[in-house]
Simulated scan of single mutants.
Amino acid sequence: MAPVISVRRRAMLAWLAACLPAHAGASPPATGTRPARIVIDPGHTPAQGGALGVRGIYEVRYNDGLASLLLRALTQAGFDVALTRGPGDNVSLEERARFANVRQADLFLSIHHDSAQLQYLEKVAVGDHDAYRTTRPISGYSIFVSQRNAHYAQSLAAAQMLGVEMRKLGRPPALHHAEPIEGESRELLAPDIGIYRFDDLVVLRQAAMPALLLEAGVIVDPADERYVSDQGNQARIVHAIVTAVRQYVATARIGHAQK
């Protein structure tokens, strides 16, 4: 069954339709006469590993793995793709946005894996390592955009396309970031497909092109961590992202041609 489209989402889709031309179908992945440039940002660094998951593995390893698969898939699909950093690189948030800006990317996509606030977590031991586990089920993906990005309408359009494709995988979006608690209270723009507004995310607001951040899954939730660690599911997530990027670039290509 297709997800129900809320009244709020209908209004947002109408606004996007006024900002962007209609989707053009299976157009080649190009903007103007060159392949579209996509910058993939694997979140966090070896020095600052991000969330600590239920298996005692830091988020950065999940991010690097998914970003590597996505780099290969988008390149094979005909895009001009680059990573903001390699697995061993410690790169600041500002440098990541600067890299994309210098490269004059058409789309910036930051890859992350999610956690939850400490009130929903318990510390557990995995061998000799600490780990964190949810005390109640918290699972699913989330997509973030920033209104401080210079191309907010286009960022939101790309997020809509990605949200629809991620929802097709059969997992509901994670909604815990909208809870009115310390560290959350994010504005939930599209509950049915998991899009949030988070204006102060540095890589999104400093990117000079449409930009979004994907939390692919919740690595402190045992069931969701198993989902995102499964190679078949990783391939399905990558396929969803590539499909959404193709759809977005086809739309942006029409906009470029009309300028």
Results as ranks from 00 to 15, higher is better:
Pro87Cys: 03
Pro42Lys: 09
Glu122Ala: 14
Val124Pro: 05
Ala223Gln: 07
Leu121Tyr: 05
Ala211Cys: 05
Ser185His: 01
Leu69Tyr: 13
Leu214Arg: 00
Arg253Ser: 15
Arg10Asn: 10
Leu70Val: 00
Met161Pro: 01
Val60Asn: 13
Ala235Tyr: 13
Thr75Gly: 14
Ser6Glu: 06
Leu70Lys: 04
Val60Pro: 09
Ala73Ser: 15
Ala18Ile: 00
Ala159Met: 08
Val54Pro: 02
Gln258Ile: 08
Gly194Met: 10
Glu182Thr: 07
Glu122Asp: 09
Ile111Asp: 11
Leu93Ser: 11
His112Tyr: 07
Ile40Arg: 05
Gln231Leu: 15
Gly32Ser: 07
Glu59Ile: 12
Thr45Met: 02
Ala150Thr: 12
Val203Met: 12
Glu165Cys: 03
Asp128Glu: 14
Ser68Tyr: 11
Asp80Val: 08
Ser68His: 10
Ser110Met: 07
Leu118Pro: 08
Ser92Gln: 03
Arg236Ala: 13
Ala11Ile: 04
Glu182Leu: 13
His176Met: 03
Gly32Glu: 08
Leu118His: 04
Val238Met: 12
Tyr227Ile: 00
Leu20Glu: 12
Leu201Gln: 03
Val164Gln: 15
Phe79Met: 03
His112Met: 08
Trp15Pro: 01
Thr134Glu: 07
Asn63Pro: 11
Ile193Met: 03
Ile57Arg: 15
Ile57Gln: 14
Leu118Cys: 01
Val228Asn: 00
His112Gly: 10
Leu213Glu: 15
Ala18Cys: 00
Val39Tyr: 02
Asp230Leu: 09
Ala47Glu: 15
Ala116Cys: 06
Ala131Arg: 03
Ala14His: 05
Ile111Ala: 11
Pro46Phe: 06
Ser27Leu: 14
Val242Trp: 03
Leu213Asp: 12
Ala250Phe: 06
Val228Thr: 12
Glu122Leu: 00
Ala24His: 03
Gln104Thr: 06
Thr33Asn: 10
Leu20Gly: 01
Asp41Arg: 05
Val202Arg: 12
Asp128Phe: 11
Val7Tyr: 00
Ile40Pro: 02
Asp41Leu: 10
Gly65Pro: 03
